[in-house]
Amino acid sequence: MPATTQDGDHAIENRPAPQTSKTMKAVRFHGKEDLRFEDIPEPTCGPGQVKVKPAWCGICGSDLHEYMGGPSLCPESKPHPITGETVPLTFGHEFAGVIEEVGEGVSERFRVGTRVVVAPIIYDGDCGACQDGLVNCCWKNGFVGLSGWGGGLSEHLVVPEYTLYNCPDNVPLDVAALVEPLAVGWHAVNSSPFKRTDTALVLGGGPIGLSVIQALRARGCAQIIVSEVSGMRKEFAKDFGAHVVLDPTKDDIIARCLELTNKKGVDVTFDAAGVQPGLDQAVNSLKARGTHVNIAIWEKRCSLWPNDLVFKERRYLGVATYVKADFQEVIDALSDGRLDMAHKMITKRIAMDQVREEGFLTLINDKENQVKILVEGSGEK
């Protein structure tokens, strides 16, 4: 029997959408360095489901890792335990769009023409983590656009109601497509012991690092220090709210953090880089009883000397994506102006048939000048 999740008063069956004889365009991941813009069957709506026409979709670092290294997050030989799908899969998990069809049993909050943001986490609703409300830690978790159920790089897709959030009228749909990466940074700050009076060190000035900076700025962080090598991303970090930007190839990060905190060390560090030298610097920049927050997905095992934690009673905290409340809080912060710099993350806009050359290859070969490339869909703008 298919797994179900609870969404308000509705039990929603986690099952793939049925398909029709109609076809649509989609960007499909077939394997390492194999991305195709092709025709696939168009899905139809079932009970508890909503059909969405994407307006804008971002290209994520996770997409790049799959493309360059081959299927890792994407199921390959073994079907995903919830979606039942394997590659080839439609890419795109950072997107916003417009509802074009509503299935039976969907609440009245969602109607044809409603502007929505999609939270792409797929979860079973039954494991211990889900029972505790930690759907981001689901034992079988996956993502729309990486694990099945279509993706934002398509003309249409069908998702369960529980993935949808209303997009306020004053938030453009291109900015709404940034909610997913912004929610990652927001969740990291929410999960940490951060206080407004704290000094925070952020490792990395890419999309997630910039999301952390914006989340800290929105909460009035007293001092934000950023460690970043790229010249352009240093400028982005300053523009987005960092008080001090350091270069780990030139600056002694530990010494500078001690200098900037009256020899105490920083209160909290956020690792959005996932490299060994950065981890070493971050942990040893912490004050006694400070907290290191790991956001990065590491490509290989790292080493950590436990004594660096033990003798200063420091804490190491792992955080995974976001929970439901984070998504809504980010949408609210975009609407009320606390995340007023978010639109500057968009550095390029492309058409769906340009995704490989102008999107993926640009992010690989011109990383210095790019933060977030958005792909234009066919939905209302």
Score class of each variant (00 low, 15 high):
Glu100Pro: 02
Ser303Pro: 00
Pro16His: 02
Phe327Pro: 00
Leu216Trp: 04
Leu203Ala: 11
Pro172Leu: 02
Cys137Phe: 12
Ala176His: 07
His65Gly: 05
His65Phe: 11
Ala119Phe: 00
Leu203Thr: 00
Phe360Met: 11
Val330Gly: 11
Ser192Phe: 08
Leu201Gln: 10
Lys300Ala: 13
Val50Tyr: 06
Ile254Asp: 00
Glu13Leu: 11
Phe95Ile: 02
Leu246Phe: 11
Arg256Tyr: 01
His156Ile: 03
His65Met: 07
Gln131Asp: 05
Arg36Ser: 07
Pro88Asp: 13
Leu286His: 14
Val371Gln: 14
Trp149Gln: 04
Ala3Phe: 15
Arg233Gly: 06
Ser335Ile: 00
Ile121Cys: 03
Cys137His: 15
Val179Phe: 04
Asn294Met: 14
Leu260His: 08
Ser335Lys: 02
Asp174Arg: 03
Arg314Ile: 13
Cys167Gly: 00
Thr199Ala: 14
Lys372Ser: 10
Pro306Asn: 06
Phe110Arg: 12
Val323Arg: 00
His65Ala: 13
Asp280Lys: 13
Arg356Leu: 15
Pro79Gln: 03
Tyr316Glu: 00
Ile253Tyr: 03
Glu329Arg: 11
Leu361His: 09
Lys263Pro: 00
Arg349Leu: 03
Thr83Pro: 05
Gln354Met: 06
Leu35Pro: 09
Val184Ile: 15
Ala288Gly: 01
Cys167Met: 12
Lys234Val: 00
Phe360Thr: 10
Arg289Trp: 09
Gly205Arg: 13
